[in-house]
């Protein structure tokens, strides 16, 4: 199908960023669904991007292993930050993750191996379109599957009332830490894909603005189901391409979206909740 090849070739960058931003939105969803707010998604993405880029530039590892390492590195950092903060109230994780983004930027600028303020250049283009969308599809399927399970119900309980959930015997801190680790892995994966798609990464690509943009995907889509944030990411990524004048105001617009949606549409634009499949557990009234 040559016409399809043409489209894919012309819009490859856009198509890649649609998928990558979808993954990032999903990574944000996983944390929000457990009732926490992380502003470190950009930092986790950056860790994945730098890990992946450095491995590709300096070693001959196959891409699958590079991807695995890029998912693992941010998860380790997420554990260091998440273990102390998730025992506390919600604002602590938010504070620590904002701090993480800033401190990592300083590290990238000052460390020799990360290329300083200039960043890393000439990263091989190992990302194929199908890889991104396979990962996105698997992650979405995984999120839906978990949502149907016991864990999904526990997460919903944590989100709506953490204290009540704890009283019901749910280990809130452990559940939220698990969510944070998965989320860091997804963001790291997205970062690795984006680094191997853009061929260039810099220390300022993963700053606070990026973190808030990722949050705006999830907020616009709503966190009732995993599909919402992905839809939010698609809309907010495609919209500036369609409405050119919006491009200059992209950050202003993303900020405005968060403010308006939280104030006026607290459930997002995809407000329905994930339907429950199958029967309720025995003895539970519908």
């Amino acid at each position: 199908m040559p016409w399809l090849d043409d489209i894919l070739w012309t819009y490859q960058t856009l198509i890649h960023s649609l998928g990558i931003n979808g993954l990032l939105a999903l990574s944000m969803y996983v944390v929000l669904a457990a009732g926490q707010l992380s502003l470190g998604q950009a930092a986790f993405m950056g860790l994945g991007a730098y890990t992946g880029a450095l491995l590709s530039l300096h070693t001959g590892l196959p891409f699958a292993l590079v991807l695995a390492a890029s998912a693992l590195a941010p998860a380790v950092v997420a554990a260091v930050i998440g273990i102390p903060t998730l025992r506390l109230t919600g604002v602590y994780l938010a504070i620590a993750t904002i701090g993480l983004g800033e401190v990592l930027r300083v590290v990238y600028v000052n460390a020799g191996i990360t290329g300083g303020a200039l960043g890393l250049n000439g990263i091989p283009g190992r990302t194929e379109t199908w890889m991104i969308f396979l990962a996105l599809g698997l992650a979405l399927a995984g999120a839906f599957a978990v949502g149907q399970s016991r864990i999904g119900r526990a997460m919903e309980a944590m989100r709506s009332d953490g204290i009540a959930a704890a009283v019901m015997g749910i280990d809130r801190a452990a559940g939220q830490l698990a969510a944070l680790l998965v989320s860091a892995m997804l963001a790291g994966l997205a970062g690795c894909f984006s680094a191997h798609s853009a061929s260039f990464i810099g220390p300022n690509d993963y700053a606070f603005e990026t973190a808030v943009t990722i949050l705006s995907f999830a907020i616009l889509g709503g966190t009732g189901s995993p599909l919402g944030p992905v839809v939010g990411a698609l809309v907010l990524t495609a919209l500036p391409e369609v409405l050119r004048p919006l491009q200059d105001f992209r950050l202003v617009f993303n900020g405005l979206i968060i403010v308006l949606v939280v104030l006026f549409l607290p459930r997002g634009v995809v407000p329905w909740r994930m339907p429950r499949l199958g029967r309720l557990p025995r003895g539970m009234a519908p």
Binding site: V212, G255, V259, L263
Partner: peptide
């Protein structure tokens, strides 16, 4: 204030200010 009035969860208020700071800072730097 609007969020306080409906007793919205702690994180909603935090999110609004996250959005607002990006909005304000970007406008100012533009």
């Amino acid at each position: 204030m609007p969020l306080r009035r409906v007793r919205a969860p702690e994180l909603s208020a935090l999110m609004v200010t996250v959005g607002a700071v990006l909005l304000l800072t970007s406008l100012l730097s533009m």
